[in-house]
Structure formats: structure tokens, C-alpha cells
Design a protein around this nucleic acid. Structure first.
Lengths: 243, 243
DNA sequence: CGAGTGGTTGAAATCCGTCAAGAATAGTGG
DNA sequence: CCACTATTCTTGACGGATTTCAACCACTCG
């Protein structure tokens, strides 16, 4: 237990998390008893390359980031983990990525990898569920690659907001609470912090979003974030030409 | 069989591919008898979203691209498939990606997804191998995400060349035969065609690579492609300052 | 031969990263 | 609760990098 709380509060907290865990539906439900529940404060390392070989993780609350340091010294966030996500599966051996918590109160259940694998060998249903989990991770990465491939920074930020809306609030775009700082968004999207900030201001000025607080976004015109950045621009040019 | 060859040549070709197949080592080796071997000419669609639910594929020779069309009309290449790669696993249901062959003579083995899954249920070894395949796909995507996150276009192109060298010729950098056009490279790296072309010219001018033909690259100074773009620049600046 | 595709290069406008400064917010200790 | 500090966020200015638009060359295929 890496929490900074005192032992008493810790144990009470732990019980609370355990309840939260048992109430939660997920593919490895039957192994709740094997899982160890840990709580992390903001910025703490959940696991590094060495540990990730031994455990698989399930994120209960908060948020976490999987980081890699590029050779040019820049940090890159390769995956953003939100409640309901599994992680730690992909890297059989290599992968120097470390996983850190980003939100204040990040709770994680960790499963002993070896034991789950042995169980999977004897129960095809579990094996199937593990596959399902891996496929979901693949789908997450593909979504992000589509965002990273987008051309303008405003498009990237727009897609990011919509992704968060979809993953956090099941598509509700009234009030999306971004779980990460601008710096994290920047490293996730492959742009600079200033550009993220500017893109948000830009979207706000154009009335596409409202900033309820610095980290809470309300989507007003989904279309603008969604895609047609370019088309709208073209229409704008047409308008000028017509005039 | 979607090949454009006449029936006679087709069958002879097919036998050749079948031999090529049985000589090849891969995790689903025991199911060669279940696999259907197909050959595709350049630009042909191997499978679309609907079909990918039914089959898993193994690429024997040639190359293929997994594409998604973004809402702004731009195509993006989400994954590049080379000999030895499995594909089609990730997308249980959604994913509007289509897979097209990019090389002239692309040969693919397709496994009936349902039957493999049933077999996996009865044999844990197969289930394990399927997981292995999924993890390999995850690793591929992560590699690309690190490339996409890089800042300058020259770095992206450099990383791309090294990735191709590693995947195609087992790290041999003497003569890397790029299996795709500049347009494909551009859509894969998220930059424009002209930028790819310029980056290659730039690397050539600086003596980091040689272009044996338009699509065959020889790596002369691996360090330049590898990473230190930025460091070298910094040294350059220092040099100026010292001067 | 002409049309089409793929590749390269140039010039202009735009976008973004960097540097720098300020504003807003959170965290800390008194 | 307040001051004080550190962090996070925003905005401006500037230069460099990339996109876009355009022209041109090489090659293939009918």
C-alpha cells in the first residue's frame, strides 16, 4: 500500500475501495479475491517496466498515464487510463514504459499475472475475456492514433475532448471533466502546452465549447470539434469570395 | 480467390503459395489446413469492416495497409502489415477500417474466426498464442504512436525507415526496400507527401541515407535517423555560440 | 503519342514551437 | 483565514517548419 494516509484511515479507505470494486462490473469479476487494491496520490508511479511483467491492472477511479521518454528527452503519453480500463497486458518483456497516476485519488486493482494465466489455461471463458481486454486496449490505441494523425492542433484538441466525453461520461457532452493537466494533454496529443491552451481558447471564442472551469468543458457545437474544421473554413472562404 | 489470373495459372500459383505457407513458421501453424490462401493485386481490398468480423488473417508476402477515412476526408493509415503479421483480430464489432493490399503480389492466409475461437476454447495453448498475437499487434501500434508523436517530419521519416529496416530485413540497413509509395508513407506518418519527399532529400543531402532507387534506401549514418536530430542541432547552436 | 500515376522541387501563406511574461489557481505553513 | 510559494494556465511575439498550390520530370500503360 503506497498511500500516504495513516494506517487507520488507510484501512477504512481500503474497505471503501473494496466495496467500490465489488460493485463494479468487469471481465475478471471472478478473481476479485486475487486482486490487491492500492490507492495512489497524484504523480505516484503505479508500476514500471519491471513490475508490469508481474501484474495486470484494473483502474477503479481516478486516472493514470502510460509514459515513454523519447530519445530527444520529450515525454510522450502513450495511453491514458480511465475508470474501467485494464492495463499492463501488452508488454511481455520489453517496453520501457512506466505508469503513473495523474488524478489525486487513483485506485487500482492489481492481479498476479502468472496466476491469471494459469487459470486462463484451465478455463476457456477466462481466456476469452483476456482476449476481449487486449482487443479493447487495441481499440483505445487505434482511437488515439486517429487523433494523432489529425493535422491541425485544434482538430486534435477537439477530438480529444470528444474522446474524453465518450469515455468518461458515456457520451454526455454537457460537462466533461478533463482528468489531466494541459501538460498531459499536450504530451498525449504530441503538441506543445501553449498550443493546447490556444486551441481551447480558440474553440471557446468561436462558441464551440464553454469552459465551466479550467478543467471542465461543455460542448456546445459538436460538429466543430468533430471534423469539418476544413469544410467550415472552405465555407468561410466562399463567403468572403461571394461578398 | 480474388486474383486476376486465369484459372490455370491461378491454381499453379496457389500451390506455390501453399508451399510458401507451409514453410513459414507462425503461431497458428497447426491450423494451416483451415486456412484459405488468397492473392491480391495492388490496391485491392482484402477485407472491409463487415468481413473482418468473420476472419483472421496472416500476411505471407507483399504488404497491406489498414486505412480509416477521417471525417475531413483525409485517409489515414492506421497499421502497416508486412510478411509475418497477423491482422483482423482487434475489431470485434465496430471499426470501419478497411484493409487493402499495397504491393503487387500480396498473399494472405485467412482463418475462420469462429472455428479458431472454438478450438482455442478447447486448447489453452492456442488461446495463449492468440493472446501473443494480440500483444504483438499492440506493440506494433505503440511503436507507431511513438513515431507519430515525434515533432519534426525528418525525425518521423527517419524512424519510419528504421522501423521498416527492423521489420523487413531483420535490422539490415544496407538496402531497405520500402514496400509503399510516398503517399502511403505520408498518410502513415500524418504529414503531407511533399514533406516526406523533402525529408528524404534532406537526409540524402546530409549523407545519412542513400537512395539506391526511389523505393530502396540504404542507411549510412544510423545515428542521424535514430534520434539525436535535436541534440545535433543543440550542438550546432553551441558551436555558433562558442564561435 | 497522350493520359495517368508517382515523385520531386519551388514559392507563398499558415501553423506551430520556442521564449518570455503575466494571470489564475492550488498547496503550504503560520 | 491570510500570506506566500509553486504550479498551472494563458497570451504575445518571433522564427522556423509544414501545408498548400503549382509546376515539372520520369515512368508506365493503353
Amino acid at each position: 500500500m503506497k498511500s500516504a494516509l495513516n494506517p487507520l484511515a488507510r484501512s477504512s479507505q481500503n474497505n471503501y475501495y473494496r466495496r467500490l470494486f465489488t460493485d463494479c462490473q468487469h471481465p475478471l469479476k471472478n478473481f476479485d479475491s486475487l486482486a490487491k487494491i492500492e490507492s495512489f496520490s497524484r504523480g505516484q508511479e503505479i508500476c514500471n517496466a519491471a513490475q508490469s511483467v508481474e501484474c495486470w491492472y484494473f483502474l477503479l477511479s481516478g486516472a493514470a498515464r502510460r509514459c515513454a521518454i523519447r530519445s530527444d528527452g520529450h515525454r510522450q503519453i502513450v495511453d491514458l487510463l480511465l475508470p474501467g480500463d485494464f492495463f499492463g497486458l501488452a508488454f511481455g518483456e520489453q517496453s520501457d514504459a512506466t505508469i503513473e497516476s495523474v488524478a489525486g485519488n487513483t485506485v487500482v486493482a492489481s492481479y498476479p499475472r502468472r496466476r491469471i494465466e494459469v487459470l486462463a489455461d484451465s478455463d476457456p471463458k477466462i481466456a476469452r475475456e483476456l482476449r476481449e481486454i487486449a482487443f479493447k486496449a487495441l481499440s483505445r490505441m487505434q482511437t488515439q492514433m486517429l487523433i494523432l494523425g489529425r493535422i491541425t492542433a485544434t482538430e486534435k484538441v477537439g477530438s480529444f475532448i470528444l474522446e474524453m466525453a465518450a469515455r468518461l461520461s458515456n457520451g454526455d457532452t454537457e460537462a466533461v471533466a478533463l482528468p489531466v493537466s494541459r501538460y498531459d494533454i499536450a504530451d498525449y496529443l504530441g503538441v506543445s502546452v501553449e498550443t493546447v491552451s490556444r486551441a481551447l481558447s480558440d474553440l471557446k471564442r468561436r462558441g464551440a465549447i464553454k469552459l465551466l472551469s479550467t478543467r471542465t468543458v461543455s460542448v456546445v457545437h459538436r460538429e466543430v470539434l468533430e471534423d469539418r474544421e476544413r469544410d467550415l473554413k472552405a465555407i468561410g472562404r466562399w463567403g468572403k469570395l461571394a461578398h
